[in-house]
Design a protein around this nucleic acid. Structure first.
Lengths: 207, 207
DNA sequence: GCTTATTTTGGACGATCGTCAAGATTTTCT
DNA sequence: AGAAAATCTTGACGATCGTCCAAAATAAGC
């Protein structure tokens, strides 16, 4: 790390950080396409406009490149349902909006979602990713919780599950939908929207 | 396949099948230890008592070895809670037994569970695994449903979720517990047992 | 414009991968 | 026991991997 900061003393720090971000973008693109198991540095470099050697100029090794990319990935996926929460003026509206948002991102961001699940799973084998994965997962959990809390508020009901349980349930639901969606099931999106709404209703009492 | 059946015409079919099963066992052991991304044929052979070349005698290529192993893997993991279902004489007892069984297998079979999630995720990238994964997943879903149905029966309540939703929720719960368990959280097991029971209660009406 | 940093290239390295085939070994059959 | 078939070992192959490095290319400072 020391040599890195020295190396960029003359040029602007922003330029260096910008390149790292740029390469991280290509990394995520390659990962979402090929999966962790088959993503090589040469594949990543090909997604960018640089040669494979440059990756070791901006990152010490492959692990640092991947963890950095994963950390950036987090920003994309933890505010996905906030809009639906803010827009909803009734419990029914939130239920509808949440389901639609899940179905929407299932269809349009499927490869990114499978990347996330791939990385989270990889952290079960490689300790290097574990801390970042747990942090991102906590943020996803909070994102779901904002939906559930707001729903209970709008419905005038009280919550009957803990935050981790609510997250686990919706995450499991989404993962199943992703599996079937990528397997070619056309109806996966609609099913997900309906199931998410149904589950939402079950997680509060007296709805 | 034709040449394979011809090759074993003289010897007994059982011998051939037995070797395949034996090698599949070593494959699963290697996979659960290293993960899909880092399991090589030489690693697998080392887990067995054979050299790496023998794998291509009993299997045409790596994909066939892996899919065959996955198919065998299915047998282990789809009857796990049936005992708890059969033994329970009340809803409370089933709730307790189911939670305990989940926590138990979480602690003792963690590496096998992470293998399953790894393979299921891999099927999002490799179509070769998809059919087998979907079939195993369906069996796991049925296994969970047997628990939920029996619980509703014992509790004298009616079901308010579909089979896929129930499975997704419990599977998500287990996956979260596995993540935290492998991350070193001692309490992951107890939390899972409690959360599973709580969720079970929420999935039937009028409990 | 010349010198000095910084950035990028592209080839080379050792290791490891899946696959294959020739030969040694073991088992089976007559 | 000897021939034939089945099983297993071993070494090699081309490909690809992460990593490194010398040199080309580009940008910055004077």
């Amino acid at each position: 790390m020391t040599e890195t900061t020295e190396r960029i003393a003359r040029r602007s720090v922003d330029k260096f950080a910008q390149r790292r971000a740029e390469l991280a973008e290509s990394t995520l693109q390659a990962l979402s396409e090929l999966g962790y198991a088959r993503t090589s540095l040469r594949e990543i470099a090909q997604k960018s406009n640089f040669s494979h050697g440059v990756l070791h100029y901006y990152f010490t090794d492959k692990v640092e490149l991947l963890t950095y990319s994963v950390r950036r990935f987090e920003e994309v996926c933890v505010t996905r349902y906030d809009e639906a929460v803010a827009a909803a003026r009734s419990a029914e509206e939130l239920e509808q909006g949440f389901g639609a948002a899940m179905a929407g991102t299932l269809r349009s961001d499927a490869v990114m979602h499978r990347l996330w699940y791939d990385l989270r799973n990889q952290s079960l084998f490689e300790e290097a990713f574990r801390a970042d994965v747990l942090e991102i997962d906590a943020q996803r959990q909070a994102m779901i919780w904002r939906v559930v809390e707001r729903y209970a508020e709008l419905a005038g009901a009280s919550l009957v599950v803990t935050e981790p349980v609510a997250y686990a349930a919706f995450d499991g639901l989404f993962q199943q939908a992703l599996l079937h969606h990528l397997a070619g099931e056309e109806s996966a999106g609609e099913t997900l929207a309906a199931d998410a709404g149904s589950l939402l209703r079950r997680l509060v009492s007296g709805g």
